[in-house]
C-alpha cells in the first residue's frame, strides 16, 4: 500500500490514477499519523514551494515526512515534492525539509529562446544505477513543468540529469528517498515504469 501525501498540491489524484492503472494499491491522505505508519510514500506536488511548505507545516505533514524518512520508509518525491526535500530553495525563505543536502535554483538561461518555465518533454541521462530507474534507457524523455531545479550539495545524490541551458539534476536520491523533478505520472510509459519499480523498491539504493 502506498500513501500519497495530500497537501492541496494538485496532482495527488493523477498520481493515484497512474498507480491504479498499474494495479498498485494506494490511498490519498493528509493525516500525519498515516505517513508515520506508511509502508511507502509518494510525495507529489505542483505549484509553489512556499505555499507547499506552509500547508505541510499547518497539517504537521513536514514532521511526519521527516519521521518516515528517518525510519527508512521508501519515499518518492515528484516535482515540488522533490524540490522541498532539499535544505532550501531560491523560491522561498522558509527552510525546506533538509532530507537531502542542497538547494533549488531558478533557471536563468542566457539564451532568450529558452523560456521559463521549462515545460515539455526532455531527455534523461542516468548517472547512477538505481532500482527505480532500472527501465530508463539513454534518451528516454519525460514531462517537465518547472522554473526551479534541484541542485544537491553532493554529487552522489544526483541519479539522473537533464539539460536546459544548464545541466541539472532531474532525479535525486539518498538512502530510502528518491525524487524526480519531472511529472512521473504524466511521462507516459517511462514514468509508469518508474512508478511500478518504486512500488516494489525495498528502500535500498544499491
Amino acid at each position: 500500500m502506498i500513501h500519497i501525501v495530500d497537501y492541496d498540491a494538485g496532482n495527488q489524484t493523477s498520481v493515484k490514477r497512474a498507480l491504479d492503472h498499474l494495479g498498485v494499491d494506494s490511498v490519498i491522505t493528509s493525516d500525519p499519523e498515516d505517513l508515520v505508519r506508511a509502508e511507502r510514500i509518494v510525495f507529489p506536488g505542483v505549484g509553489h514551494a512556499h505555499s507547499a511548505l506552509e500547508t505541510l507545516g499547518k497539517r504537521g505533514l513536514d514532521d511526519a515526512l521527516k519521521s518516515a524518512a528517518g525510519q527508512g520508509t521508501p519515499i518518492l518525491g515528484i516535482c515540488v515534492g522533490c524540490q522541498i526535500l532539499l535544505s532550501g530553495s531560491e523560491e522561498t525563505d522558509l527552510p525546506c525539509l533538509d532530507l537531502i543536502g542542497g538547494r533549488c535554483l531558478r533557471f536563468r538561461p542566457d539564451d532568450d529562446a529558452l523560456k521559463v518555465p521549462h515545460m515539455g518533454w526532455n531527455a534523461l541521462k542516468v548517472d547512477r544505477a538505481h532500482p527505480v530507474l532500472r527501465h530508463v534507457r539513454p534518451g528516454d524523455e519525460v514531462y517537465f513543468v518547472h522554473s526551479y531545479y534541484p541542485a544537491p550539495g553532493e554529487e552522489r545524490d544526483v541519479l539522473a540529469r537533464s539539460r536546459y541551458g544548464v545541466e541539472f539534476a532531474a532525479v535525486i536520491g539518498r538512502r530510502n528517498i528518491v525524487a524526480a523533478q519531472f511529472h512521473v505520472e504524466k511521462s507516459g510509459p517511462v514514468g509508469l515504469k518508474m512508478l511500478g519499480e518504486f512500488a516494489r523498491w525495498d528502500g535500498n539504493s544499491c
Binding site: T13, D20, K186, S187, G188, P189, L192
Partner: peptide
C-alpha cells in the same frame, strides 16, 4: 481520459 492516458 485521466484514468487511461498518462500524458498532459
Amino acid at each position: 481520459v485521466a484514468r487511461q492516458v498518462f500524458i498532459p
